[in-house]
Amino acid sequence: MFFTSPYFAPGTLIEMALCNAATRGVEVRLLVPHIGDPRVAGWATRAAYEPLLVAGARVYEYRSRKLHAKAAVIDGEWAMIGSANVDHLSLFVNQELVLIARDRSLAEALRIQHEQDLQNAELVTLSQWRLRGWGERSLEMLGKGARWLL
């Protein structure tokens, strides 16, 4: 399960589903920007890391340039691409356009692009993540609180 999203602020159900999948041994990879735009969106994204990392998911922060892709590959045969982010507004408020297709060739093309994008990203490890300072943790709490507004 590979996700690329510039805004990743999942609600409880999505977070639980991803954590459960990772715990079952499903390869869950998330590619998000290193710095959010706006910054509060980045704080909200970073607030979601720890449960995913504990469950065994891999989180990568894209560092090359602005990340705008919104795509997912599930089980190597389902592909999702469109305008929706993984956040409250995209899922429940905004009028988004998303293609979800059971198409192995599209899924493979998106997987290859995801792999290429990972070359310009840095893996966030749980041990590294737990060493971050209280300033960062405080900003993440603000971002988590703002998830419903993003």
Rank of each mutant, 00 (worst) to 15 (best):
M1D: 09
F2T: 13
P6C: 08
P6R: 01
F8C: 10
P10L: 08
G11A: 09
G11Q: 09
T12C: 04
T12M: 05
I14Y: 02
A17V: 06
L18H: 01
C19L: 01
N20K: 04
A21D: 04
A22T: 05
T23P: 00
V26C: 04
R29Y: 13
L31I: 13
V32W: 04
I35V: 14
G36F: 00
D37T: 15
D37M: 14
P38T: 14
R39C: 03
R39A: 15
V40E: 14
V40G: 01
A44P: 03
A44M: 12
A47H: 07
A47F: 06
A48R: 13
Y49Q: 03
P51L: 09
L52V: 14
L53W: 07
A55V: 05
A55P: 00
G56C: 07
G56H: 03
R58D: 10
Y60D: 06
E61G: 01
R63P: 01
S64T: 05
S64G: 05
A69P: 00
A69Y: 04
A69C: 04
A71N: 05
A71C: 04
V73N: 03
I74L: 11
G76Y: 06
G76H: 05
G76M: 04
E77S: 08
W78G: 05
A79F: 02
M80R: 08
I81M: 11
G82T: 07
G82I: 07
N85R: 02
N85V: 08
L89I: 02
S90W: 00
S90F: 02
S90T: 09
S90N: 03
L91E: 14
V93H: 09
L97S: 12
V98N: 11
L99W: 01
L99K: 02
L99S: 12
L99F: 08
R102A: 10
R102L: 09
R102S: 08
R102T: 07
R102Q: 15
D103G: 03
D103P: 00
R104I: 15
A107D: 06
R111G: 07
R111Y: 02
I112K: 10
E115Y: 01
D117G: 02
N120Q: 08
N120P: 00
E122W: 01
E122M: 06
V124Y: 09
V124A: 10
T125Q: 10
T125A: 13
S127F: 00
Q128A: 15
Q128N: 08
W129M: 07
W129R: 12
W134F: 06
G135P: 00
E136W: 03
S138W: 13
E140T: 08
M141H: 03
G143N: 09
G143L: 09
K144D: 15
G145T: 07
A146I: 00
R147W: 10
R147V: 05
L149R: 15
